[in-house]
Every structure is written in structure tokens, then in C-alpha cells.
Amino acid sequence: TGIVNVSSSLNVRSSASTSSKVIGSLSGNTKVTIVGEEGAFYKIEYKGSHGYVAAEYI
């Protein structure tokens, strides 16, 4: 489990890349469940599926 540490919002992406499609966003202080790690990204549970967020902001 981690907490989103941004002042505005954090993009949730379809894969572990900044060039991948943005599938949603999370606001600051949102609690997320981390299920894996790929490079600089965490794989998280997101809306019944999975998404990827930049690990530096969690």
C-alpha cells in the first residue's frame, strides 16, 4: 500500500512507460494497493484492473 504524493493529480497509465496511454488519474493523498514494480513504475490495483504510476510519486 502506498499514498499518492502529489499536489494536483497523478496519471495512471496502461503500461510502465511515460509514452503509454493515460487511463485515468489519482488525486494527492489517495491510498493505492501496489501489486508489482517495473522499473520506475509501480503496478497498482485500479478500477477492478491494473494500472501503472510513477514510483517517485508514491
Rank of each mutant, 00 (worst) to 15 (best):
T1S: 11
T1C: 15
T1W: 15
T1I: 14
T1Y: 14
T1L: 11
G2E: 04
G2Q: 05
G2N: 05
G2R: 08
I3M: 09
I3G: 04
I3K: 07
I3E: 05
I3W: 14
I3H: 09
V4R: 04
V4F: 05
V4D: 03
V4I: 08
N5I: 13
N5W: 08
N5S: 09
V6M: 08
V6A: 10
S7E: 10
S7T: 12
S8G: 15
S8E: 12
S8F: 13
S8R: 13
S9C: 15
L10Y: 02
L10E: 03
L10K: 02
L10D: 02
N11A: 15
N11W: 10
V12E: 01
V12I: 07
V12K: 00
V12A: 01
V12W: 01
V12C: 03
R13D: 02
R13C: 10
R13E: 02
S14R: 10
S14F: 11
S14W: 08
S14E: 15
S15V: 06
S15M: 10
S15K: 11
S15N: 09
A16H: 05
S17V: 05
S17G: 07
S17A: 08
T18C: 15
T18H: 15
S19K: 12
S19G: 10
S19N: 13
S19R: 12
S19V: 09
K21S: 11
K21R: 12
V22L: 07
V22T: 07
V22W: 05
I23V: 07
I23M: 07
I23E: 01
I23F: 02
G24K: 01
S25I: 15
S25E: 11
S25F: 13
L26Q: 02
L26H: 03
S27Q: 14
G28C: 14
G28W: 13
G28S: 12
N29R: 11
N29Y: 14
N29V: 06
T30F: 06
T30R: 05
T30L: 06
T30G: 05
K31I: 15
K31T: 12
K31S: 09
K31P: 09
V32E: 00
V32S: 00
V32Q: 00
V32R: 00
T33P: 03
T33Q: 09
T33S: 08
I34M: 03
V35H: 05
V35T: 07
V35P: 01
G36L: 05
E37N: 09
E37K: 15
E37D: 06
E37A: 13
E37H: 14
E38Y: 10
E38G: 02
E38M: 08
G39I: 03
G39Y: 05
G39E: 06
G39C: 07
G39R: 05
G39D: 08
G39N: 09
A40I: 10
A40R: 10
A40Y: 09
A40W: 07
F41E: 02
F41R: 01
Y42F: 10
Y42A: 04
K43C: 09
K43R: 08
K43H: 05
K43M: 10
K43P: 02
I44E: 02
I44A: 00
I44D: 02
I44P: 03
I44H: 01
I44Y: 01
E45I: 13
Y46N: 01
Y46W: 11
Y46M: 03
Y46D: 01
Y46I: 03
Y46C: 04
K47Q: 13
K47L: 13
K47M: 14
K47P: 02
K47F: 11
G48D: 09
G48I: 03
G48W: 05
G48L: 05
S49P: 01
H50E: 07
H50C: 09
G51M: 02
G51D: 01
G51C: 04
Y52Q: 00
Y52V: 00
Y52L: 02
Y52G: 00
V53C: 03
V53H: 00
A54H: 10
A55I: 15
A55N: 06
A55H: 07
A55R: 15
E56A: 11
E56N: 07
E56F: 08
Y57D: 08
I58S: 01
I58K: 02
I58A: 02
I58D: 01
I58M: 04
